[in-house]
Amino acid sequence: MVLGSALSLQFGSAVAALLFPRAGALGVVALRLLFSAVLLLALFRPRLRGHTRADWLAVAGLGVALGTMNTLFYQAIERIPLGAAVTLELLGPLVLSVVASRRLVSLAWAALAGGGVYLLSAGDFGRLDTGGVAYALAAGAMWTAYILFNARTGARFPKVDGLALAMGVAALVSAPLGVVSAGPALLDPVTLGLGAAVAVLSSGVPYTLEMFALRRLPAATFAVLMSLMPAAATTAGFLVLGQSMGPVQLLAVALVVAASMGAVRASRG
């Protein structure tokens, strides 16, 4: 289920990239978050009453982090290959794991990740668009904020009610940028249909699979498996977008994945 979630999410991102010529990155992310919000709110029907101010602040923080993270990430994959973008984005949660661990071995995992990033910059990916790299790293920072706010929201709301409400906030964050950027292109029937498909692939399927997986797997195991995101992204980028990677770049992705797994395990004890 976790692997299926990772593949669905990254194939959804690849399909989203195909939509960029129609509506641009900002327009596509607005469609994705809007349809995702409608889907989650309809499926889980979160309760709106009976929540404290602190509850709503947690939801707002999660929604802003979610909307900003996706907006930055889509800006990144508009400029650099999907596999590289997810590999760089993963550095955010990896840094969080290293800081949370406070163990000397975590520095070794950080060094391993640094080696992976060096290989990315030393090979053909050394010609990566600087803006795309910056967007991917910024998305990684927001991924860290998403993790922290998600934990806080999950403790205050039952099941995935908090996430569903936060997705609505994320849609509100991204919608103005999408409308200004894409305008009438967002109303094209084909664009709307593919935007809905991206929402199902990137939100509906992954969140459902992850919810069921967390009922069967320890959280630490789940976190380690989620470190395989760059491998899933590389596969989706190759199959859907024709983005090939050489042996050096594949080794770089493998090093970052291994470093993330090691850092997560170290932070868990």
Rank of each mutant, 00 (worst) to 15 (best):
L120S: 04
A108K: 03
L255N: 00
A17P: 11
P158V: 06
D55C: 11
A258G: 11
F149A: 03
A185G: 09
V133I: 01
P176Q: 08
S181N: 14
A236H: 05
G262T: 13
R79M: 08
V98E: 05
G4W: 08
A252D: 04
G24I: 00
V180F: 15
N70G: 14
L255C: 09
A111C: 08
R32F: 00
P158N: 08
V29N: 00
M261A: 10
K159A: 13
V205W: 03
M167Q: 04
L82P: 03
P247H: 01
A233H: 09
G115K: 09
V169I: 04
L239N: 13
L104M: 15
A145V: 12
G114Y: 11
T153N: 00
A76H: 09
A6F: 14
F157R: 02
G242I: 13
G168K: 06
F212K: 12
D129N: 02
L137H: 04
L251W: 07
Y207R: 09
L7T: 05
S121G: 15
Y135F: 09
L48P: 05
V59D: 12
A42R: 03
S244I: 13
P81H: 07
G237A: 05
L250M: 01
S260T: 15
E89S: 00
R103C: 06
V98A: 01
A25Q: 08
V64P: 12
A139M: 04
P93D: 08
Y118H: 14
R103E: 06
V2P: 08
V173L: 01
A175K: 07
A259I: 11
M211I: 15
R215D: 13
L148P: 08
L94F: 07
A14R: 02
L72R: 11
E210D: 10
S101C: 01
W109C: 11
G269Y: 14
T52M: 12
N150V: 13
L163N: 01
G154S: 06
L19H: 05
G246K: 01
G131N: 03
V86D: 01
S244N: 13
I77G: 03
P247D: 02
S5V: 11
A145L: 12
G50M: 00
V2R: 02
A23Q: 03
Y207T: 08
T52C: 12
P46Y: 00
G193N: 07
S267K: 10
A85K: 05
A100E: 09
P247T: 05
V198I: 10
P21I: 04
R103G: 05
P218D: 03
V180G: 13
A233V: 10
A30I: 04
